[in-house]
Amino acid sequence: MNNFLKRRNLIRLIKRRRKKEEDVEINIKDKINIPQHLFTQCPNCGSNILTDRLKELGKVCPDCDYHFSMGARERLDLILDPEYEEIQRRARYRNPLSFPGYKEKMRDLLNKTDAEEAVVVARGTIDTLPLVAMAMDAAFMMGSMGTYVGEQITRGFEMAGDKKWPVIIFSASGGARMQEGILSLMQMAKTAGAVREHGEKGLLFISCVTHPTTGGVTASFASLGDIILAEPNALVGFAGQRVIEQTIGEKLPEGFQRSEFMQKHGFIDAVIHRQELKTTLARLIALHSREKKK
C-alpha cells in the first residue's frame, strides 16, 4: 500500500511539472500577453471565466449554467466532507483480449489524466453521515466499464453492505469497455447483482447520472438506484445517437436522451443543479438514516 501511495504521489508530481511546462509554452506562443490558462472558455455560451472562479462554482458556467465535465476526484471533493479515504486498488493494466495498443493507451492516459482508471471509490461522510461514494471519470477511456471498474464498484457495494452504509454513484461513462470484450459485458451482471445484494439489506443506493451515461452502464447499476438523480442536460440513454439515427433513418430532435427528456419519460426522479447536489444528497441520506422501527 505504501509503495502504491508513493508511486501515485510521484506520478502527480510529474504531471504537475509537465503542466507547468505546457503553460509556459502557451505563454510564449500568444501574441497578446494574457495568461490563457487563467481563463476557461464556456463551450456553450463562449464567455471567459476565471478558472479559479469556475472551480469555486463547482465547474458550472455562471452565465449559462453549462455544467463542465468533472474528473472523479474533483467530484468527490465537491460532494464529500473533506478528508475522505479512497479505497483504491492499484489498477493493473491487463489485456485479456490481447487487444493491440490497449495497454499503451491506458498508460498514456495515466500520464495525461488525474485518474488511474475510470472509477474512484471512496469511503467518507456527507454532513457527518458515513457512506461509500463512487465517481466515474469520463476522461479515462470514456469512463468505460471494464473488469477493473466492475470489480471496484462491486467491492464498493460489498463494503457498504458490510458496514450498513448507503452508496452514491456518479456515473459518467460511454458504456462497457470494448477493448475487454465479453468480460466487460459480464461486469453488467456483476454490478447489477451487487446492487441487488446491497438493496436486500434495506440499504439506500442513489444513482446520480452525469454527462454522459450510456450503454452498458445505463443498462446496469446506473438505472437501478432507489433514487435516480441527474445533472441538467446530461446525456442519458442506452443506444448511441448515431446508431439510433442510422436505425430510424432520421435526425434526432434537440434534447433527445437529455436528463430533462428522460425525466419527462419517467426514468429520472429529479434533475438537480450541481450547486444544489450536495445539499440534496445530504438531505436524502439523512432522511434514510433514521433508526427504523422494529
Partner: peptide, 25 residues
C-alpha cells in the same frame, strides 16, 4: 436490443438493467 428512438423513450437501458437484476436474484 433494438436501438430505436421509441425504445429509448420507453427505457431500454432500465428494462435491461432490471431484467439482469431480476435474474441475479
Amino acid at each position: 436490443a433494438y436501438p430505436g428512438s421509441e425504445a429509448e423513450k420507453r427505457g431500454q437501458g432500465e428494462a435491461i438493467a432490471s431484467c439482469i437484476e431480476c435474474m441475479t436474484g
